[in-house]
Design a protein around this nucleic acid. Structure first.
Lengths: 126, 126, 126, 126
DNA sequence: GTGGTCTAGACCACT
DNA sequence: GTGGTCTAGACCACA
């Protein structure tokens, strides 16, 4: 697993998202063992305490289960992961719509705008 | 202007966004005078220091200018506002795509998903 | 508020219990501001980080609400506190019964035993 | 002997309590041979090292004695067991009283509360 | 070797 | 001055 840390949000949350996204994608399956906190700390080049905080958060969210002296394991089953995946998509979409509305796009403008973005021939839509 | 404050991001930034969005929407036009800091503080029920910080940020971003003893005025012209508006849309779209990719949607799945959301008859697309 | 720290359980949890019991007892009421993390750290003579962890836990339990730059406030209303109080009593009672059963007391023996403890004249029932 | 492991306290201590309670109840008598460490490990589905630690603790507490190559035997005589049993009851009772006091029950309230729990007709006292 | 707790101290963001 | 994040490093408990 790769950890790309950017600067805007707390490192421990970035770790949480990196890992939880992997779970949601199904890349980490129930029962899988996460790398040890020390290993993650080494790979992401952050302090072990920061990693631990991330792991605590993952457990709190119900994604993992940690067994003292053993390690941390994925708990969330595939079905729940799928739910979270769809939820993430809906949330992202809502956020997108809200943002456009906030800066003044009407519903129809949004429709047109998105249609334009989706055109496969649409010359580099970014 | 209404101020709806939620808890996740700093209050002063929420104020900045509330105001800058109004400018971007063209609701506040160049030369318009913003409500006084103390009015904003009262309406949003936040500490005046927090409002001041928000106004400082708006000025730093080039959206407003403050005239001592007079008040704070919108500086950004309509053309620049339009640029920001389009930029906001592109940013929101990119963020949306990035999020879906992060949780495992392929490009095609995104396309299908969005198309489905956009169907006007699809009731409940929001 | 006094903090008596013993050695058997993690300090941060002892802090959590000290404070949450005060809330449950109604000694700290909704809207009351807790002493700052630094103050608690000083009074309890522990590291501020340890206190912060305790405060995080209190917030996670829904007892308090912390406002950055302001302080930490009691959130739990009196009614909810009462519920927790009764719950605590039931839990303690269950635990007591379970323990006696585990070491071999029959239901009747428990009854007799407790009746004996409760006798007010029973000279030092401890 | 059944081993029901919960998650809150160290596994080795749970094993200690399971076994010591059996001794205190008189279910395991002086001279009785405990199941082998490997049997316990298998039945409780825990690491043999964990069982060993539990057995060490039992011996340290004076409940058992280990004879090399033979096995582990209950050492505690019935009289001592009875003392421990009564001690356990008193401890549990004290803990119960302390807990209720901590959440704000007065002595009289405790008395009333317990009396209510003890009413045999009061169905659902557990 | 693994996770859990704690200390010490720094720096930042916010009100 | 308040809480939030992070580092560094220690020591412990557990499997």
């Amino acid at each position: 697993m790769e950890f790309h840390l950017r600067g805007d949000s707390p490192i421990y949350l970035q770790l949480v998202h990196t890992i939880s996204d992997a779970v949601v994608r199904g890349e980490l399956k129930p029962g899988d063992r996460l790398p040890s906190q020390r290993d993650v700390a080494a790979k992401a080049r952050v302090n072990p305490n920061t990693v631990q905080r991330a792991f605590m958060e993952l457990e709190r969210l119900g994604l993992t289960e940690t067994r003292r002296g053993e390690g941390t394991y994925v708990k969330l089953d595939q079905e729940q992961a799928q739910v979270l995946k769809e939820q993430a998509a809906r949330d992202a979409w809502q956020q997108f719509l809200a943002r456009l509305a906030a800066v003044g796009y009407s519903e129809n403008e949004v429709r047109t705008w998105v249609a334009h973005q989706m055109k496969p021939d649409g010359r580099k839509n970014v």
